[in-house]
Every structure is written in C-alpha cells, then in structure tokens.
C-alpha cells in the first residue's frame, strides 16, 4: 500500500498531524510487575512493549558465557505477541530478525552496564511486544533501560533510542527533502529510516541500524535529527525515573 507522502510538502504536516521534529506520545511506567527484579512498560505512540529483568543471578552454565566468566552475561529474549501486528503472523523463535534484535540489545547493554561488578552471573532481559506501530527496536531499547534502572543494576548512562527518516525516496535527488523524527509503521513502510540509540546526553552512538537504501548525502541530516530525538527521549525517561524515585521516598516517610 503506497503511502501518499505528496501531501507533506503542502502543509509540512505528517499523516498523523505531527511536524517533522515531533516525537509521538511517549509514556512509560516502572515496576509494573512485582515478581520481577525490574520491570517496565513503555508506549511509543501505538508501539507497546513490556520488559522484565531477572538477575543478576548465578550463571547456569559457564560454557555459554561469552565473556569468559569475569563479567556478567546479558541475555535477551524477545517474544512477539500474535495480536501485535496488523496481520496475525506466527514468528518462531528462530526468526533471524528477532535474533538480530536480541543480539543488538544484549551487545548494547553489556557495554553500558557495569557488568564487571557481577562476575559469573547472568542478567536476563525478557521483552514482550504487545503492539507494533514502528520504531520497534527503539521502544525495546528504551523499555530495557527503564527496567534495568528499576532492577538497580549500575550503568554508565541511559541508552535512549528513536528512529529518524527522510521524506525523499532514494532515487529522487531533491534537496528539499526533510528529515523526520520517530516514524510510525506506515512511514516505515514507505520511507528510508534508521534506528539510532545514544548513550545519555552525549553524541556517542551505541546502536545504529538502517535497512533501507538512501543517498549518502541524506544520512547526515537523518542522523543529526535522530541523535537530537534521543536527547528528547532521555529527558522523558529521566522524568519517569525521577517520578518513581520521589514516590518511593514519600512512601518511606509515612
């Protein structure tokens, strides 16, 4: 289904009424599951994910440990609910796209967490996707950050992620093409886009995934908008954490 992007240039408004640099509504909760060591629920527009953290706990077998035992191993499992997409498609656990996302999240967090404080142990992240509407990997990364904070695992800084796209298709060479922030599913189908995750307030990119064809000159604008979006996401996530913190403090005073 081709998306009619021609209307964008008339009013500079996207299909859902946003401007080019606006995020969708991003809401999150921490400690949603009492049984887990850390948990979070995150919505980025209509993309909804739940994350639970178990650990750090003793590694079941050291042979599967990639880091050789002197630091904690981060393991990620992603489950995609059957009702999450538009068409009900069963995805096996062997799906390579899911496996790639798991590896990405595990690699990103094993760098940002202080894993050397927990030798011979495992930190398990279990992610459930309830609803998909674009920016899936970004939502998963953000939810994981919140759940790991809830679990109290020390980390260098937040890993915040969002997507950025461009209104031009790869073939057209128009210089007027605008970069876009935080694409939804329809825009992702049609436009070139990338997922970017930065570490905290810095410009240091931890994850950068692009799967569509785009002119090399277009990339700089997209990346700049994406990194800027990550900073906005960080503000929102930080507020969520602080709100939770004050609530705990108020509760302890009673």
């Amino acid at each position: 289904m081709p998306l009619d992007t021609s209307t964008y240039s008339l009013a500079l408004l996207r299909l859902d009424g946003r401007r080019w640099n606006e995020l969708r509504r991003l809401t999150a909760q921490i400690s949603t599951q009492a049984a887990a060591d850390g948990s979070s629920y995150l919505e980025m527009g209509n993309t909804k994910v739940i994350c639970t953290v178990t650990g750090p706990l003793e590694a079941k077998s050291t042979s599967g440990n990639r880091s050789g035992g002197d630091r904690a191993d981060v393991q990620v499992s992603i489950r995609i609910a059957g009702f999450s997409g538009v068409d009900r498609k069963r995805r096996g656990r062997g799906d390579k796209r899911t496996q790639e996302m798991q590896t990405t999240i595990a690699n990103a967090f094993s760098q940002s967490l202080f894993t050397h404080l927990y030798p011979h142990s495992t930190i398990t992240l279990s992610l459930h996707i309830l609803s998909q509407d674009g920016s899936l990997l970004a939502a998963l990364l953000n939810a994981s950050t919140l759940a790991l904070i809830d679990a109290g695992i020390p980390m260098r800084d937040y890993i915040c992620a969002c997507t950025a796209g461009s209104t031009s298709s790869y073939s057209s060479n128009d210089e007027k093409a605008d970069p876009l922030l935080d694409l939804n599913n329809m825009e992702e189908q049609e436009l070139p886009f990338l997922t970017v995750a930065t570490l905290g307030d810095t410009d240091d990119v931890s994850v950068l995934v692009m799967e569509t064809r785009v002119q090399i000159g277009r990339l700089e604008g997209m990346l700049a908008v994406g990194v800027d979006g990550c900073k906005q996401v960080r503000e929102i996530l930080d507020q969520v954490v602080r709100k939770r913190g004050t609530k705990i403090l108020e509760g302890s005073q009673l």
Partner: peptide, 16 residues
C-alpha cells in the same frame, strides 16, 4: 554512493 544498510549492533558507543 547509495547506502543500502548500516548495522552497528551495540558495542562501544562511537561519536556520530
């Protein structure tokens, strides 16, 4: 000069 994919799957954070 058409970029078909970029994959930086976690790891060390690098300046944009």
């Amino acid at each position: 000069g058409e970029v078909c994919q970029i994959a930086k799957l976690g790891g060390l954070p690098v300046d944009a």
